[in-house]
Design a protein around this nucleic acid. Structure first.
Lengths: 229, 229
DNA sequence: TAGATTGTTAATCGATTAACAATC
DNA sequence: TAGATTGTTAATCGATTAACAATC
């Protein structure tokens, strides 16, 4: 599980990385249930992919299974945590303490996986100074300075501001030196190539569901394949 | 995170549907800025894909552009709203009034796009009866009955309960007759094939960022792709 | 061992990219 | 018209699936 035995990481598909996180989540769940061994077949079934893919995904990083037996759950969890670099804390700032922002500040899931909030910002005088979950809201004008002098350093920025302000806040984060941005605003941010950006548009998800539901009406087609897995 | 069903339906790739929502978001933004015409090149640039893909995606549904000219923004918005079936209201129930659930109940973005909350449920006696954003929290025991008799009918279920309860709640929604489920719990739900399921695992997104930051390597997919996949 | 299941190479499939004819 | 840009067909690329040898 150390880096020594790993194969080349060139060209690891984004979809593979996303599935690694899925595998990890499922394995943690199995581990909680007391399961100590799992086959690629069973893990695949639970995640909703096929077993070829599980083995292929893992093979990018090494050999972690036992032939004829399966994968030791605990070991595989450790391996995936290592691969995803989850064996250390990651610090984030969050900007925008609206409904969604407040929810994320209070969300346990992040901290549980080692993602810790370093500080929280907003532009509204009404919100600056108030406290959420132990974090006193700071003025967004202090964001760059904060990021530059933060110790431990802040790697991640979480954007939960309205569309109008998203690009501005993103720019500040980049100037401040974050390495990755999780953007919950519906705006497509423009960021330099070295910044890792993920857009999470909650409304889009509902729209996708809407599309598939609309196409399922009685006359549309012979029963096709399901979107559910 | 990501969709659970990997297959397209009626020959339209899932990734295309997701991009349609992205195009719509960008077009709405352009429209707000007063832009009335946009080329596939410009729209592609803003969304972070290439123009071939924009034209290809739209061509699944018809011809909406003017050669030598581009696309009329207003018309294309109307077309996309029609395709995604957004020209009517969609009703949803939300189960689980924790931090994330409360945020979604209060989130304007959903309603703005025609997704309306029909009712809100929780299992905790401490929360039942309290009000959030005008919705009085109902006991989860009433969920199935509510869904069966709701008028207007409820198509969508949003799950924001802890992992432990997610499958149970999902089962109730299915029994109640929802057509699609947006699952924010980290559990991979098992649902019948006719149910459209999208999993949104917020922690996974951070883990993906962690992976790429650890490698100082850009994504291999279109930068800043929307989630769900 | 024999059966089971991995790890890996090869084949397939489908999405993306490219090219270009149509046409405003 | 001439230049521009769409809509669509063909080529490419890469992820997924399949097959199977390795081996516990």
């Amino acid at each position: 599980m150390g880096r020594s035995g790993e194969k080349s990481r060139q060209g690891i598909p984004y979809s593979t990385v996303l599935r690694l996180a899925s595998y990890l989540r499922t394995l943690e769940w199995l581990s909680m249930l007391g399961v100590t061994t799992v086959s690629s077949e069973e893990l695949a079934r639970q995640v909703g992919v096929n077993s070829y893919l599980v083995r292929k995904d893992l093979s990018y990083f090494g050999e972690f299974g036992v032939r004829g037996f399966g994968y030791p759950v605990g070991d595989l969890i450790a391996v995936l945590r290592e691969i995803l670099d989850l064996n250390r804390d990651h610090y984030a700032v969050l900007v925008g303490v609206g409904n969604l922002g407040r929810a994320l500040v209070r969300y346990y899931g992040f901290a549980r996986e080692g993602f810790k909030l370093s500080a929280v910002f907003d532009s509204s005088p009404r919100k600056i100074g108030t406290r959420f979950n132990g974090h006193q809201v700071r003025p967004v004008g202090e964001l760059v300075d904060y990021l530059r002098s933060a110790d431990p350093p802040v790697e991640l920025g979480i954007i939960t501001v309205p569309a109008m302000a998203a690009q501005f806040v993103g720019d500040l984060m980049v100037v401040g030196g974050v390495k990755g941005i999780l953007n919950f605003s519906p705006v497509r941010l423009q960021v330099p190539g070295h910044i890792h950006l993920l857009n999470v548009d909650l409304v889009s998800h509902l729209e996708v569901l809407s599309f598939y539901i609309a196409r399922e009406r009685p006359f549309s087609l012979p029963a096709g394949r399901s979107t559910a897995g």
